[in-house]
């Protein structure tokens, strides 16, 4: 009976070290920030606008890119084709490359002298230094989280259920919307939340594509480099608390909606 106790104690101790490492800086930062500073910063219009912009752009980017990313994930989960492994590897690439490098890659792709940039300009859209550019930079670094989660979700749906739906007279679209998507929904939702969270916390790629309009991670950096830690800290604390709140709301929502149901 002694062995399991030692085992548990050791694992709890090791786990505790990690938890301490993760939470101590955050908790320390929150407690080091005077409430007065926190309230006055929260009242600043510049800060409010920045937080709203960050959340809104990340949210819209997640929704817009999901429209194409979810079908791509389905294909990757279900179809066998040459180069599939390569594509899967490429999709995860933004996770491993430095995000400043990702920003430079995006900038090279959307700047005014590129085809995309020119097409955008002809439509009156300027990607660099705009919300569109911020969205693209956020999407570039956060899409792998959605795609990987959605692929796992679709893989967990037994093919036999899709075959049964076909056999009962459903075509590919109906089968996808009434069987595959609802059953993979939990993983997809998880992926959407991760993508949203990753997008709104992005700094490296966004700062290269669009310093202005200023999203909150850029604002935190700007205040830190220009005015120091004391001035940057309240913004960081407010953003962390709001992010935490949004994250909790999403998690509660995702746990409640275990499976979406789409009537065939």
């Amino acid at each position: 009976m002694k062995k399991p106790e030692t085992f548990n104690l050791l694992f709890i101790a090791l786990g505790g070290v990690i938890l301490l490492f993760l939470f101590a800086p955050l908790v320390g930062m929150i407690f080091k920030t005077p409430l007065n500073d926190l309230f006055s910063t929260a009242k600043e219009q510049e800060v409010q606008k920045s937080i709203i912009l960050t959340l809104l752009v990340s949210f819209c980017t997640t929704l817009i890119f999901a429209i194409a990313a979810i079908p791509l994930s389905y294909l990757l989960a279900r179809k066998k084709f040459t180069g599939k492994k390569l594509i899967m590897g490429l999709i995860s690439l933004p996770i491993v490359i430095p995000h400043s490098a990702a920003g430079i890659a995006i900038l090279g792709f959307i700047s005014r002298d590129t085809i995309i940039g020119k097409i955008g300009a002809s439509l009156g859209l300027n990607f660099v230094g705009s919300s569109f550019g911020i969205g693209l930079a956020m999407a570039f670094v956060s899409l792998p989280f959605l795609i990987n989660a959605a692929v796992d979700g679709f893989l967990s749906v037994p093919v036999r259920l899709e075959k049964a739906a076909f056999n009962l007279g459903a075509n590919s679209f109906k089968t996808f919307f009434s069987i595959s998507l609802p059953l993979a929904w939990r993983s997809i939702l998880s992926g959407l939340i991760l993508m949203f969270a990753r997008g709104m916390s992005e700094f490296g790629a966004v700062v290269i594509v669009a310093y202005h309009p200023m999203i909150t991670p850029v604002m935190i950096y700007e205040r830190f480099s220009a005015f120091g830690l004391k001035y940057a800290r309240p913004v960081a604390v407010i953003f962390i608390l709001i992010s935490l709140l949004v994250f909790i709301v999403f998690r509660v929502f995702s746990n409640k909606s275990k499976i979406i149901k789409i009537r065939p």
Binding site: P158, K163, A164, F166, N167, K261
Partner: peptide
């Protein structure tokens, strides 16, 4: 397949769990 007017009860029944 959806136009064959054949129904199939597979061995594991494939009842939609959701």
């Amino acid at each position: 397949i959806e136009k064959r007017e054949m129904s199939y009860v597979p061995q594991d029944l494939a009842i939609f769990p959701h």
